[in-house]
Design a protein around this nucleic acid. Structure first.
Lengths: 147, 147
DNA sequence: TATTGTTATACTCTATAACTATA
DNA sequence: TATAGTTATAGAGTATAACAATA
């Protein structure tokens, strides 16, 4: 691989903010096309990984637990998620996607045309490299080997 | 170089969403420590690149132009930004950071400990590689308007 | 006619505080 | 005592529609 231009940390932080704004905009527009707010879409996206309690949802979305009540209420009213009492701790309510909720979040993901096209500009090896680097930066315990 | 595990596009999209959530959470907490909402902080962050009109701000933040009026009103009331009428088009108002606004957004950026520590896990060559890949994925082809 | 920015409206998101049920 | 979730409240964010000023 040819030598890349040296980039200082501030420029990388700046590009990171631009990149994530682009991703967020893409997601927000896709969610709106399904008549969902960004917070509602993000909640479905988190639940796509599996059921989660109200407090875990709040932590993941970086908001107060009290906010999740209203967000999950509206999603539940539309039949996209459902609350299920935990068997082991009766205080806990686990939230899970319904089949319809699963369908909707998959549609939203498929509508992120800008991001999908951007990833399409990378070949397979470049995608693997990007994956490994992002994992190192944003994941506490990286599973991928060092480059 | 060790071969990296193959990663399909869906897993990469998933990691992007996790990365964004981590970055966004880091930024939101840092902004809150300066008594700013996420939207207010994002506005300052965009303006750190230079003045921008109300409509450009709205496009960059992926929200309706009418929202920017209130956000900029509150930032202006705190002395963090100011509106200046455009010389060439009297309909346009350019928004610029004040010295205090510049100071505050720099403080916020410096408080993004999680993200800064994450980037610190990469050596210089890896940072350059990440920069080049993100630029390919999220920057529009010819010369994206440097915001 | 089209665009920029604002206002008015209704709804959603958000943090804080107080409450309950459970641990 | 501590934690999970809800409720109430006030302030902020959000899209839509309508408007004035300017292009």
């Amino acid at each position: 691989m040819t030598a890349l231009p040296r980039v200082d940390s501030a420029r990388l932080m700046e590009l990171l903010s631009v990149s994530l704004a682009a991703y967020y905009g893409d997601f927000t527009i896709a969610a709106a096309s399904e008549n969902l707010t960004a917070s509602q879409g993000k909640t479905l996206n988190v639940l796509r990984r599996g059921p989660a309690s109200m407090s875990v949802l709040a932590t993941t979305l970086t908001c107060d637990a009290s906010n999740m009540t209203g967000i999950v209420d509206r999603l539940e009213k539309r039949g996209l998620v459902r609350r299920k009492p935990s068997a082991s701790d009766r205080r806990v309510k686990n939230v899970a996607l319904t089949a319809e909720g699963e369908r909707v979040i998959d549609v939203i993901r498929g509508k992120m045309h800008h991001t999908l096209a951007g990833l399409g500009r990378l070949d397979e090896q470049e995608q693997d490299t990007l994956y490994a680097l992002l994992e190192r930066v944003f994941t506490a315990q990286p599973a991928a080997p060092r480059l």
